[in-house]
Amino acid sequence: MSPLFTIFISAVLVNNFVLYYFLGICPFLGVSSRLESSVGMGMATTFVMTMTALITWPLYYYLISPETGLNLPFLEYVIFILVIASLVQFVEMFIRKFFQPLYRALGIYLPLITTNCAILGMALFMVIREYNYLESMVFGFGAGAGFTLVIVIMAGIREELEWVPVPRAFKGAPVVLVTAGFLALAFMGFSGMISP
């Protein structure tokens, strides 16, 4: 298997961002109650993640990195979060101007993406694992696709859960957490697919 394909499959299934690294749990629990909004959230997140990978990679290697850049490691987190915040702002303005229907469909979920830790986490993993430019792009896209997959599955389960008599103490967050636990258990089945 080519390394790019391995990176993609690993980000989507084997080391899924939500179920393996616990990144992006807040939107995963908050937005997964309805199928439609979870699809919109997933798509917007995938787009921002891919763009973040494309922008933070050159910034890291030409500005922050001690070896190839200007040696500013103490600015790493500040720069990354600024890139993500401005990117989300930019994407929001762009979609509002040129894709009115999509903007209405995503609504308030767009600004929420800034605080999705999966995006900053993706940028940090990209640096730690020393991916090259193309690999980073595939990694960002795969992480977003994995997030979308899981949040959509979860929304499907939660729509069914509404008809189930859940014990009173488990109503709300607890039953969702336990469900996520079983989902994580199911995703463990992919763990043998790729040797790390």
Binding site: L177, L185, M188
Partner: peptide, 25 residues
């Protein structure tokens, strides 16, 4: 071992949250 894996984290926190709810109720 399951308790140290991601699935254990979700399930344990879910049970703790349920305990919290039942004490409050």
């Amino acid at each position: 071992i399951i308790m140290l894996l991601p699935a254990g984290a979700f399930i344990t926190l879910g049970i703790l949250a349920a305990l919290y709810n039942s004490v409050n109720l």
